[in-house]
């Protein structure tokens, strides 16, 4: 495996996670500080299935993602039901992410705090690339569907959305589940790439980095968070001296973004060239320009 390939894989993993969070944060307006927890669930679930039950990796990846999505409903339902949002939701998810990490720390069957070595290495560059393309295509289909429009309505004005007949709770839960599914998939890919898992890989720092990528990338955009995740992963990997400055830069960029460009780098902007659903429709002869 070449070095470039490993950078590509790492970029793809952050991109998948960022795309999922873009649906939750950029479209639906819910800020999560616990997505590392969903990544951990996907990662450990997939690793366990591959190692103990010898299930093919693609299936384990799917199972890990589904597990993360289901778990997100367990935490999301009581949190969103009370119509408490904003800060509150961020702190609840933060607590949830830490609980997942600390539970793993205290689960000897999954390696405990010491970690799980000898996870089979299954994530190839092509698999990671395919995952990103698929994730992007599905996310675009989602955001352009009625669901996506409902998400935007809930972000802009939950009260009006409700009067217009949008089921706010259901929309938010759907967005949360989809984003957790993406995070789970990213976690499973990470497990298959690292060959080793430990709870220390899924800290609050990872959650906030992910949120930073999405906020920097832009509100109501998939292209923005995708690009931000790729750049923020690739640059420190390729320029090692930049690595130690990475977090300083993240923080400073966040403040600057909040002050001068709250919609983010590519807020409200999509890359037309990557519009997969429309490409698909055009290929099937039902041409419809984006």
């Amino acid at each position: 495996m070449g070095y470039l390939q490993s950078v590509v894989i790492l970029c793809c993993i952050s991109a998948v996670a960022a795309l999922g969070l873009a649906i939750l944060t950029g479209y639906t307006g819910l800020y999560s500080l616990g997505h590392a927890g969903f990544m951990a669930v996907g990662a450990y679930c997939a690793a366990w299935l591959v190692m103990r039950l010898h299930i093919p990796f693609a299936l384990a990846l799917l199972a890990g993602s589904v597990a993360a999505a289901l778990l997100s409903l367990v935490i999301g339902y009581p949190a969103l039901r009370s119509r408490l949002r904003g800060d509150y939701f961020a702190v609840v998810t933060l607590g949830f992410g830490e609980v997942v990490r600390l539970l793993l720390n205290n689960t000897p069957a999954l390696g405990g705090a010491i970690g799980l070595p000898d996870v089979p290495v299954r994530t190839s560059g092509w698999l990671a690339l395919a995952a990103v393309v698929l994730a992007f295509g599905l996310a675009q289909a989602f955001t352009r569907s009625q669901w996506g429009r409902n998400c935007i309505a809930c972000r802009l004005d939950p009260l009006t959305a409700r009067t217009l007949g949008v089921d706010v709770l259901r929309t938010q839960l759907t967005a949360l589940a989809v984003s957790a599914f993406y995070a789970g998939a990213a976690g499973a890919l990470l497990a298959g790439y690292m060959g080793y898992l430990s709870p220390a890989m899924f800290t609050l720092a990872r959650s906030s980095e992910l949120l930073a990528a999405v906020i920097l990338g832009g509100v109501q955009s998939l292209a923005g968070p995708l690009l931000a995740a790729l750049l923020l992963t690739a640059v420190p990997e390729l320029l090692r001296f930049a690595a130690s400055w990475r977090l300083v830069l993240y923080g400073a960029l966040l403040v600057v973004t909040m002050l001068w460009r709250p919609q983010g780098l590519l807020g409200y902007y999509e890359l037309p060239a990557l519009n997969l659903p429309s490409l698909w429709r055009r290929m099937r002869g039902k041409g419809e320009l984006p």
Partner: peptide, 8 residues
């Protein structure tokens, strides 16, 4: 904003 300033 506070989180970003803190991180930096």
């Amino acid at each position: 904003s506070a989180m970003g300033a803190n991180l930096a």
